[in-house]
């Protein structure tokens, strides 16, 4: 298998998906199955760490976009961090993600989650 998919639950509602390898015609089904394990849970934020993703084709992009549709449909957010230049280029071509959800590091994505949570708590206490 040319792809590894690791799922980490960082906090309640916050998941980190680490992709390692190639997300293409050979591996997309495997990735899709892995994501299905968490897609029906209550996801506030899901971050893809793509530092070790070297290649993505249209089938891989479909998996990503489908996950985004599902999560955003329930009010959650999908973020990415550490995109390699060739992956960033592909994401830009197909407008896979709004620019404000593309982060240079996991730490920045974490900070985004913290900010969302803080805002939600503030609103609840109003």
């Amino acid at each position: 298998m040319n792809l590894e998919v690791d799922i980490w639950k960082k906090e309640e509602g916050y998941y980190l998906i680490v992709l390692n390898g190639r997300l293409d015609r050979e591996t997309y089904e495997f990735c899709e199955r892995k994501l299905e394990q968490i897609l029906d849970t209550d996801i506030r934020v899901l971050t893809f760490d793509m530092s070790n993703l070297s290649y993505i084709s249209s089938m891989g992009l479909r998996v990503f976009l489908k996950a985004r549709k599902t999560i955003e449909g329930k009010g959650g957010k999908v973020l990415t961090a550490n995109l390699q230049p060739q992956i960033a280029k592909i994401f830009e071509i197909v407008a896979a993600l709004p620019k404000q959800h593309v982060f240079a590091s996991i730490r920045e994505a974490d900070a985004y989650f913290d900010a969302i949570q803080k805002k939600e708590i503030e609103e609840r206490n109003k």
Binding site: S57, S58, L61, R62, L65, K66, R68, K69, E72, G73, I90, I93, V94, A95
Partner: peptide, 24 residues
């Protein structure tokens, strides 16, 4: 080609391959 100006929920997730060929 897919209409990328649409919001994701209204977008067809297909035709991406052809878009990539043209752009790359």
């Amino acid at each position: 080609e897919p209409d990328l100006s649409l919001a994701l929920e209204d977008r067809q997730i297909g035709g991406l391959g052809v878009l990539l060929i043209r752009k790359l």
